[in-house]
Design a protein around this nucleic acid. Structure first.
Length: 297
DNA sequence: GGACCTTGGGCACCTATTCC
DNA sequence: GGAATAGGTGCCCAAGGTCC
């Protein structure tokens, strides 16, 4: 039997349902609904059919399914996966779209499925966790408005990643920078400075700094800190390690520095994040979503 | 009460930027 | 792609808060 959980569902000028599924299942038949769906894969692999198009989803894939369009998801190998899904009605989007028409761009753009890099995954997962946290507390003041603001951020983020048709030139990836980025991804847990890396690749630190900024859009410490905080988020969710142990494991020599960066990137302290993640686990395992009840398979 | 977590201030060093 | 430098970042220390 599938283990299906839920974040929350709200009735009012818009409805949202968040669900997290941790064991294999498939919608064997295509289905449609009169609300928009945002599908984010946190782990594992899935196949997603939207209309007559098939997309292969992996960890960090963010899919936008328009209303009234037939779609289904299928098991891929391995079958285990973890996902977060958001549904919302026109009622929400009507007022917001008048001010910002680009909000619906992810649903009508050329790329209904986005592959997010590490930093983008951290950003999106943080938004989604905040959404769940917000709706798990039904008594919280202004929670619908706050949720709307989070959803708006997510839609604008996705809209900005859509090709605008203006023929923007795709930047060629410098082989050196590709190796440097890979090196960062592989060794972010170890003490690392720009000078060390530059020396390893026989380049000057200022040149490496410029390359990184040009091709990743982020400075060296920004990129490194994002990798480290993202790993620390995983450790906070999945282990019972102490803060100082987590800080050390992801490459911070100092707990104060870890705390400062964590709050800077996620907007909350490590402890707040841990509680929020635990709260999400509690909420997701406690209830069954009405939406999934309606779409029994 | 003790262990752990968070926050703030100060200083040294590193990085991003500019100019060449 | 290198040199210079202003500003930012990382680290240390200390104090207060929170939780068990």
């Amino acid at each position: 039997m599938n283990t299906i959980g839920e974040g929350a569902r709200v009735k009012g000028d818009f409805e949202v349902s968040i669900s997290k599924i941790v064991t294999p299942f498939s919608f064997l038949k295509s289905h449609t609904h009169d609300y928009y769906e945002i599908y984010y894969l946190m782990s594992g692999r899935r196949r997603l059919y939207i209309g007559n198009q098939c997309y292969s989803l992996k960890k960090g894939s963010l899919a936008f399914i328009p209303k009234n369009v037939p779609h289904k998801t299928m098991t891929a190998s391995p079958p285990e996966h973890e996902r977060l899904v958001i549904y919302f009605h026109d009622a929400y989007i009507d007022s917001a779209v008048k001010e910002q028409p680009d909000l619906l761009l992810p649903f009508s753009g050329q790329k209904p499925v986005l592959e997010l890099n590490q930093q983008e995954q951290a950003f999106v997962e943080n938004l989604l966790l905040q959404m769940i946290n917000e709706y798990s507390d039904k008594d919280r003041r202004g929670r619908a408005l706050y949720f709307k603001s989070l959803l708006t951020q997510l839609l604008l983020f996705a809209g900005r990643k859509q090709p605008d048709g203006s023929g923007e030139e795709i930047k060629p990836v410098n082989p050196s920078i590709r190796e440097i980025v890979q090196h960062c991804n592989d060794h972010f847990r170890e003490p690392m400075t720009l000078g060390q890396i530059a020396g390893q690749f026989f380049l000057s630190p200022s040149y490496v700094s410029r390359l990184l900024k040009k091709y990743t859009g982020h400075s060296f410490p920004e990129y490194l800190n994002t990798l480290r905080i993202r790993e620390s988020q995983r450790l906070l969710r999945e282990t019972g390690l102490k803060m100082i142990e987590i800080a050390e494991q992801v490459g911070y020599l100092n707990i104060t520095h870890f705390n400062k960066n964590f709050k800077l990137i996620t907007g909350m302290s490590p402890l707040q994040y841990k509680k929020m993640a635990q709260n999400m686990e509690h909420v997701t395992l406690k209830h069954k979503p009405e939406f999934l009840e309606k779409h029994r398979f």
